[in-house]
């Protein structure tokens, strides 16, 4: 970086810094609107629309969201549990699989890749999948049914394979093999150390997948103490839509429906922690790793 800044570098920097700033602004504006909306009085949002700064400042929406703090804390706890366990196990399984199918000496690597990839194109739909977990494995109501189905995805396996093939040249593993290293040694000593960015990416994607999921709670939870956070919030939103759908069926006492500002507050509450977590992963995307260091 310190060598010298030629004119091309300067031009490049001007262009890239400007575009980055522009893009960041475009990307962040709706989020700011949501944030300010969550602090605005509900009536004001409806009559005057969204704004970048809260107009009629109010924390009413957050009071509503945190009305039952123990419930929301429980949902947070469960989500951390699912995310932690799922990401950990998933990362191990994905990395192992990706390692195997990236090995040239593994004769069936294409077959295995295909078997994995095939699942991303063909699927039997929700019903047999649901029956598999609820009837065959008898897992309805357990936490297993919530973390297990998202452990792996063909996309992440294939992405990981690309990372491994890109960051570990064949020559290195070949020479290690000649030195008598087994697969376990190669995997742990040679592949893992240079896989930082790859692990961070896949781990991030897995974690985001777990964090954002509500569907599996919706399908398999029978008790609200096992709900994922997103489902806890999402279900509150759905209550209002659903009750509208049954409008013809009258005399249904409706609980208070979440107002627009409450919906926004929920969005903030559910994404906030991820945004705080992101910088920890970020260090893998900020500074590179030199493969050369391992070679020596």
């Amino acid at each position: 970086m310190t060598i010298r800044k030629g004119p091309s570098q300067i031009i490049f920097n001007i262009v890239s810094y400007t575009l980055l700033a522009l893009m960041s602004i475009i990307c962040v504006i709706p989020f700011v609107m949501i944030l300010s909306g969550s602090f605005t009085d509900n009536h004001t949002i409806l009559t005057e629309g969204y704004s970048l700064l809260p107009r009629d400042f109010s924390v009413e929406a957050y009071k509503t969201v945190f009305k039952a703090p123990e419930d929301i804390l429980q949902a947070y706890k469960m989500t951390f549990f699912y995310t932690g366990l799922g990401t950990f196990l998933g990362l191990i399984m994905i990395t192992l699989t990706a390692y195997v199918i990236s090995r040239k000496e593994f004769k069936y690597r294409n077959t295995v890749s295909f078997i994995i990839y095939f699942t991303s194109i063909f699927g039997g739909g929700t019903i047999p999948w649901y029956l598999m977990y609820s009837q065959v494995l008898n897992a309805k109501g357990t936490t297993f049914a919530i973390w297990f189905p998202a452990l792996m995805s063909p996309f992440l396996v294939i992405l990981m394979r690309t990372f491994i093939m890109g960051s570990v040249p064949d020559a290195i593993t070949e020479s290690a093999k000649i030195d008598g290293a087994g697969h376990v040694t190669i995997f742990l000593r040679i592949v893992m150390p240079v896989l930082g960015p790859g692990l961070a990416t896949i781990g991030l994607f897995l974690a985001l997948g777990y964090w954002n999921d509500w569907y599996r709670s919706s399908m398999f939870s029978t008790d609200s103490s096992t709900w994922e956070l997103q489902f806890y919030l999402y279900d509150l939103l759905n209550a209002s839509t659903a009750i509208k759908q049954m409008s013809q069926n009258s005399s249904i006492s409706t609980a208070e429906l979440p107002t627009q500002s409450v919906k926004l507050a929920m969005a903030v509450v559910s994404t906030g922690p991820v945004l705080l977590f992101y910088p920890f992963v970020q260090k893998y995307f900020v500074s590179g790793i030199t493969v050369g260091a391992v070679k020596g």
Binding site: L96, T97, V100, I116, G124, I127, P128, W129, M152
Partner: peptide
Amino acid sequence: MLVPTFFYFLINNYLPMAG
């Protein structure tokens, strides 16, 4: 190394594919 993966895709994808 592939054994867990095999079971995962079998349970989660291949068996339900009958649908």
